[in-house]
Structures are given as structure tokens and as C-alpha cells.
Computed example of a mutant assay.
Amino acid sequence: MSRARLRLLGAAAALALAAAAPFTPALAQTPMDDPLDARDAKRVDRMERVVRELRDIVFKGQKTGAPVVVQPADTDARMAEQANHISDLEQSLTRLNGSLEVTTHELDQARRATAALQTQVKLLSDRLAADEQKAAEVAAAATPPAPVQSVPPDPKAASADAFAQARQLMLGGDYDAAEAAFGAFVTTYPDTPRAPEARYWWGKTLLVRGDYARAASAFIGAIRDWPKTAWAPDAVVELSRALVSLKKPGDACQTLAELGRRYPKAPPAVVNHAAAIRAQAKCG
């Protein structure tokens, strides 16, 4: 048995003797030689205080004759209070742990939601980039290419092609298109070597359509310098024909008179055609 327990039993025995017999001064207790450790010493001190309190209560009851009521020691009350306080703290800690678990769960959910949002944002960003790329490709395809600096065509070659096309239209019997083509040639290439001949053929198409005034103007432009070409004698006869249709027989006869002087070796067909027009105009 420990020394502390022996001292507690001795104190309880002394208290019992004091309650059963008249009050006598307490005998001094001889302290034990062996030292106690700090923990046992504190327990002993607490028990000694309790014993002193109990002894005071007993002595008070002996003096007053009142019944002895043993109240719980202040130390026990404080210990009970501390126990209650600890219980409250434990309950508070339990509530805090529950709140912490809820908060942790909500935080995990928020993290998952954030990760999902980040994934959606990345998908939308990729889709937007793809749409922008497609729009750029469509815009690039719709943009017309820059004009290529080409060498201007040779006027002589271009005029030859234009004359050939107009002549082909006339040979094909499309006089309306031939008239437009020869008229465009005369306007576009007025100073080219084939411009007089183009005027001759242009007059032919106008004469077929009955546009005698413009036909006469075209023939005059064709034979202005009395060119030495195969078509020139016929152009003179066609001019006189247009003048007869315009009710100008005198001008027609004068034109036919120039035919023999300018083109004495005209083809027989042209000469015969001139004789017929001369008779129509009643030339003297």
C-alpha cells in the first residue's frame, strides 16, 4: 500500500474519532521521511484540504448542536464544472467537425464544378478558333485575286482579229452583227491600214438594211483617197446607188463619171452594175 493511501486512511480515522468524542486538540503528525512524487503530493494536499473542511463542519456542529450536513467540497464542484465545460467543448468540437466535413464536401463539389467549367471553356475556345479559321478561309477564297499585270495586246494584231471576226459574221449572213462589228472597228481602229476596207464593208451592211445616208457616208470614207484596191471600184458604184436612193441622181451621175477616170480597168461586173445605175439615174 502506498504512503499516500496510508495518510488518507489516517486522516479518515482521526476525523471519526473527533466526531465520536469531545473535542481534543489534534495530535501533531510526524511527517514521513520518504518524499512523494509531485503528482501524489498534489493529491495529498487536496485530500488534506477536504479533511480540514470536514473537521471544521464537525466542530461547528458540536458547538451549535445543529445537524451536520456534509456539502461537496469546492474542489469537487470545480471538477464537476470543469467536466461540464469539457463536455460542452467536446460537443462544440463535434459540431465543428460536422461543419468541417460539410464544408469539405462542398469544397470538393466546387472543385469538380470548376474543373467541368474549365473543360467546357476549353471546348468552346477550340470551337471558336476552328470557326475563325473557317471564316478566314472562306474570306480568303471570296477575295478576288490581284489583277495580273499583262502586256497590252498588239494593236495591229488586235485589229486584224477584229476585222476577221466582222468579215466572218457578214459571210455568215448575220448582217446586223456584221454592221455592229465593222462599225466598232471603224471607231476603234480609224487609222489602221484596213480601216478604209472596213468602211466599205460597213457601207455594204448599211445598204442592205436600207440605211442609205449612213451607207453613203461609209462609202465616201472608204474611197476618200481613191485607193488602188480590188474593192475600190465597187465602192464607187455602191456610193452612186446609195445617192440614187437618197434622191440625188446628179451626185450619183457625177460619182459614176469618176469611175471611168479613176478605175479604167474595173471588172466587167462592176462596169455593168454602173451602167444599170447610170440608166436609173438618167445620166446624160
Rank of each mutant, 00 (worst) to 15 (best):
S2R: 10
A4H: 04
L6W: 12
L8W: 11
A11Q: 13
A14S: 06
L15W: 02
L15D: 09
A16G: 02
A20K: 01
F23V: 11
A28F: 12
Q29E: 15
D33H: 10
D37S: 08
D40F: 02
E48S: 10
V50W: 06
E53N: 05
D56K: 11
G61A: 15
G65Q: 01
A66Y: 09
P67I: 09
V70I: 13
Q71S: 10
Q71E: 14
A73Y: 03
A73R: 01
A80D: 14
Q82K: 08
H85W: 07
H85C: 02
E90S: 11
L93V: 05
T94H: 07
L96A: 13
N97I: 03
T103A: 15
A113Y: 05
T114V: 09
L117W: 13
K122Q: 14
S125H: 11
D126T: 09
R127N: 08
A136S: 13
A140T: 07
P144Q: 08
D154C: 02
K156V: 14
A157I: 10
D161V: 06
A162D: 09
Q165F: 12
Q168L: 12
Q168V: 04
M170D: 01
D176G: 04
F182I: 02
T187W: 00
Y189I: 04
T192V: 06
P196F: 05
A198G: 01
Y200E: 02
W202A: 02
W202N: 06
K204Y: 06
L206C: 03
G210L: 06
Y212F: 15
A216H: 00
S217Q: 15
R224G: 09
W226D: 08
A232E: 03
V237T: 05
E238I: 00
R241F: 07
Q254K: 07
E258W: 03
L259M: 03
G260T: 11
Y263R: 01
P267Y: 02
V270S: 01
I277G: 01
A281V: 02
K282F: 01
K282E: 10
